[in-house]
Nucleic acid binder design. Structure first.
Length: 165
DNA sequence: ATAAAGGCCACCC
DNA sequence: GGGTGGCCTTTAT
């Protein structure tokens, strides 16, 4: 992982969404993490591994407000993903997939100009820190099968169904 | 510096 | 459906 930028007023929390309870974290007043862990311990552990040593303050109220904005009629909040140049280019490409559509790991590799790096694209997508807003769930395998999902295939299925039509 | 582990793909059976 | 070899990045030795 590259060196982390300073996080001002870092905070995090948990809140219910249409896809189960999410774990969300903020840096510099923007979202730096959005995940759907099986339980809160895992959510916290994931956050610690992504941002070692950062002292996030618990703030479920703030998370609740953002959940309403994201899954209600609110405008899309700004995302602040942190990663390597390769990861950022992959996550950037994901944001151009329209809702209700899917693409493949190989197509993403083409879009970022690294057609041979399909395997690495899969790994980078698995490391997506801000799921749903950076729609890694819209990426499936070339053969049409679903592929994997860091937070459980049921979650991926639910998101795709939610966006269908 | 090197090894091991990945949300993959093409190809074979 | 399953297994193999190749590919590339990241993380941990």
């Amino acid at each position: 992982m590259r060196e982390l930028p300073p996080l001002s007023e870092p905070c995090f929390g948990f809140y219910a969404t249409p896809f189960g309870e999410c774990c969300m974290a903020f840096s510099n007043d923007g979202i730096c993490a959005l995940t759907f862990p099986e339980d809160r311990d895992r959510g916290w552990a994931d956050l610690q591994s992504r941002f070692p040593g950062v002292d996030f303050k618990r703030n479920d109220t703030k998370v609740a407000a953002y959940v309403r904005q994201i899954f209600g009629k609110g405008k899309r909040p700004v995302v602040h993903p942190i990663g390597t140049d390769f990861q950022l280019s992959v996550w950037e490409a994901l944001q151009n997939i329209p809702a209700g559509k899917t693409t493949t790991y190989a197509q993403i590799a083409d879009v970022i100009g690294r057609p041979k790096a399909v395997r690495a694209v899969g790994t980078a997508i698995g490391a997506n820190p801000i799921v749903y807003l950076i729609p890694c769930h819209r990426v499936i395998r070339t053969d049409g099968s679903l592929g994997g999902y860091r937070w459980g295939l049921e979650c991926k299925k639910a998101m795709l169904a939610y966006e269908k039509r």
